Amino acid sequence: MTDQLEHIEDVPVFVLGADGPALATENDALDLIVAAGHHGADAKWAVVPASRLCSDFFTLSTGFAGMMAQKFTSYGVGLVILGDVSGYASKPFQDWVRETNKGRHVWFARDKQHLAELLRG
């Protein structure tokens, strides 16, 4: 699948394709924010397959996940991590997943159906 704008629950979301290099730097996060804003309807959310994230994202002590979350929040674009992240079993990470899903800026969705449920609120 290639990067594309989709509408889920009538909300424009920019979905990053499953194939491609891992997002591993601050510039990668910024490039994704720009891409989400340049696809016609100004996507409200950027959807990133979990497989496209570098391993540092899943180790909270590196600060990479927090930096990404902050960049997306600052630029007013929501961040969705799509896919099963249960294999990243550290308690701090799983706690963060639970807490972010209660908010409106960063979500973890098992699949697009789960994302649709989150968007319905």
Rank of each mutant, 00 (worst) to 15 (best):
M1E: 11
E9V: 11
E9W: 00
D10A: 14
D10C: 05
V13L: 03
A18M: 05
D19S: 09
P21T: 11
A22D: 01
L23N: 00
L23I: 08
L23T: 01
N27K: 15
L30Y: 04
D31G: 14
L32I: 11
L32K: 11
V34K: 02
A35C: 08
A36Y: 11
G37C: 07
H39S: 13
G40S: 14
G40P: 08
A41C: 09
A41R: 15
A43F: 08
K44E: 15
W45A: 09
V47L: 05
V48T: 11
V48K: 01
V48D: 08
V48G: 04
A50E: 14
R52W: 04
R52A: 08
L53H: 12
S55N: 11
S55K: 05
D56S: 15
F58L: 03
T59D: 13
T59P: 00
S61G: 12
T62A: 05
F64D: 08
A65C: 03
M68D: 12
M68F: 15
M68I: 15
A69V: 08
G76C: 02
G78H: 07
G78Q: 13
L79M: 06
L79Q: 02
V80E: 05
L82M: 02
G83E: 12
G83C: 11
G83F: 06
D84L: 12
D84G: 12
D84S: 11
S86D: 13
S86Y: 02
S86I: 03
G87M: 15
P92L: 06
D95V: 06
D95P: 00
V97N: 13
R98F: 13
E99H: 11
K102C: 03
G103E: 10
G103V: 10
R104M: 10
H105C: 04
V106F: 09
A109R: 14
R110V: 04
H114C: 12
E117H: 01
L118A: 02
L118N: 00
L118I: 10
